[in-house]
Design a protein around this nucleic acid. Sequence first.
RNA 1: CGGGGUAUGGCGCAGUGGUAGCGCGCACCGUUCGGGACGGUGAGGUCGCCCGUUCAAAUCGGGCUACCCCGACCA
Length: 417
Amino acid sequence: MKYSKLFGKTIKEISREETSVNAKLLTRAGFIRKEVAGVYNFLPLGLRALNKIAQIVREEMNKAGGQEVLLSSLQGKENWEKTGRWESFDALFRLASKFEKEYALGPTHEEVLVPLISEFISSYRDLPIYVYQIQNKFRDEARAKAGLLRGREFLMKDLYSFHADEKNMMEYYEKMKKVYINTFNRLGLSAIETRAAGGTFSKFSHEYQVICESGEDQIIYCPGGDYAENVEIIENPEKLENKQCDLGHGSLKRVKVAEVGNIFPLKNKFSEPFNLVYKDKDGKDQFVYMGCYGIGISRVMGVIVEVHHDENGIIWPRSVAPYQAHFLTVNNSRSTINKAEKIYNNLQKSGIDILYDDREVSPGEKFADADLIGIPARLVLSEKTGDKIEWKERNKEKKELLSIEEAEKRLKEEKEL
RNA sequence: CGGGGUAUGGCGCAGUGGUAGCGCGCACCGUUCGGGACGGUGAGGUCGCCCGUUCAAAUCGGGCUACCCCGACCA
């Protein structure tokens, strides 16, 4: 992509009202624009990063046996009344049509998927089954905040598992814990698996928390990894804080965190109201056991920026960067530009996605924009580099001079990773 | 939902009653070209909305709306 043609430019300044790091940097770098409070538009750079995140999550869900679907956002009132959540779900957007029909704007999808899947589950032979989607969710939050961290419309992956019994449900639940940790690792986040309340869903749940100043939750955890609990379910958090870990990992720490994922053992909570049953081997009806597993895709994007940035801009993990490399020329002499065009065209042909800053602006501006946008590799062609390309990683000081062939080879190798 | 703050060219801001300004960006010309270059010329504003006070309102008063922050709430 040529920067000069890109929809979405960087900006130097942003209102002093915008204080969260992710909103500031993503807006300045041209990734997102706010529509209304808690609702964002994603520009091409932003969508590329968002799609990279979604794709990693998709791959992991597929590996875990998930089948992808796309469920409706606009949902009839009737099923929400069956679960009692038309009244009790505080953040539910309720819409009144001019034709005297009422709808919910989907904040979650048990009310859609459970009746839907009941058509296809009739025998123990149909179980277990795992269904997920990646879709915009709507929640009428009392207060949207911190850019992408808490919005009223946001992209979420929600997987629902259906099992014959509790044992099978819990086995999958345990398996998904590992899948989640691995998924967040691939996204460049080290998430702490944390015991938490189950809300109106279940007795308990597990949250995946990333240490982050702008997070809304607090947890107490052992750095050795054998304990983590949300302070909301701890009776005397003050007492636990700084207590020595039983296994000798040092003292327990209390930290602010942002929740990027949450898993719940739902058991029969939703199969009962919708009479989701199957015939067991003895021909008797049994309720299906369910689990549900969420990851906030757009929130993950915000958290990545909160965690990976410096004073100059974003530092994307390679796995989610909008482009593989940021290529720019320093002087605008005809010969340099011709050479750069050739390199760019070659890379395009090899299927390597780079952002090529082809503008006729000062070097300082190009460097500043490259830092702000935060693509992991910066490639410079100039009279100084001659027939070579300078390669610099966004998060390192070191610069290397590579021949054009070497640079292309390295890009191809990295692409395979 | 309670408390606090903000609202002025595309963006960021200044402007305490008397003809609406600055920086950035944008357009054109010239000089620059390894860390947000410089000079010149130019376009661009119902000062969030409504009502009021006044000879006169961006500026004072009342109401409303939107956004940000703190808290409460939170699948």
